[in-house]
């Protein structure tokens, strides 16, 4: 029943075997499935039951805000550390480009870390982020694949112009690989912070690289959820 349900909702479950061992040693591969969106350094963590990165419909934590607006995962890492989480952050060693993959290894032996979370900011967005939020780590050895959606942290208005990566400041940061493909001189879209985490509605963008309402390129930076495939191999 569980297999059938998983298949019909789009999750692929491969290599199921009937062994009943506790997950201890796993690899997590994050693939950026978008055509033109970069992921900032990824937080990848196993953490205890009852904890999660965020809850949709609720305000984002200051740690999620720092990650979603500027790609800073240090706050999340500290919070996860205090929970006794097993972490393997920044597996891409920086930005994860469109079409690229990165793999993290986690060993939860001797811990109570049964939940997996993965998150990073999406660029170019104001406060968009990709997340897998506290899923049960499979206990049966095998390879499991999950799709991850883009969320909006709700902490910053989506004005879609170049600006700051600091929490509470308008605009989005533009690191070097994005410099040539992000526009300049946009007037900005009138938008207020929504106040709660939700599935991202996507970016508008425009097709004018030197003016127009948005510095985002509508033909390159739009996406339709999901934005990532996350493959978990339980050894």
């Amino acid at each position: 029943m569980k297999l059938t349900r998983a298949v019909t909702t789009g999750l692929a479950i491969l290599g199921l075997t009937p062994a009943l061992v506790q997950a201890a040693d796993l690899t997590v591969t994050i693939e950026n499935l978008t055509r033109g969106v970069y992921f900032t350094p990824l937080a990848v963590a196993a953490h205890p039951e009852g904890s999660q990165l965020f809850q949709t419909g609720q305000p984002a934590s200051t740690q999620i805000q720092a990650m979603a607006e500027g790609g800073d995962i240090s706050g999340l890492a500290g919070q996860l550390s205090s929970l006794g989480a097993t972490q393997a952050n920044n597996p891409a060693g920086g930005l994860l480009a469109p079409g690229a993959s990165a793999t993290a290894s986690l060993n939860t032996d001797g811990t109570a870390n049964t939940q997996l979370s993965v998150t990073a900011m999406l660029l170019p967005t104001n406060d968009g982020f990709v997340a897998l939020n506290a899923i049960d780590i499979p206990t049966t050895p095998g390879t499991y694949s999950f799709y991850a959606n883009a969320y909006d942290a709700g902490t910053e208005g989506n004005d879609e112009v170049r600006g700051s990566g600091s929490p509470g400041e308008a605009g989005f940061p533009v690191p070097p690989p994005l410099e040539p493909v992000v526009g300049t001189g946009a007037t900005g879209i009138t938008a207020a912070a929504e106040g709660f985490v939700h599935i991202h509605r996507g970016v508008l963008g425009d097709s004018d690289n030197g003016a127009g309402p948005s510095d985002i390129d509508s033909g390159l930076h739009r996406w339709l959820n999901p934005v990532a495939r996350i493959t978990v191999t339980v050894n």
């Binding site: 978008t34 055509r35 033109g36 963008g205 425009d206 509508s218 033909g219 996406w223 934005v227």
Partner: peptide, 15 residues
């Protein structure tokens, strides 16, 4: 490279 589709923009959305 093959990627997930981002959708079409269309003239109605300013392309």
């Amino acid at each position: 490279a093959v990627a997930l589709h981002g959708g079409v923009v269309t003239q109605d959305d300013g392309m």
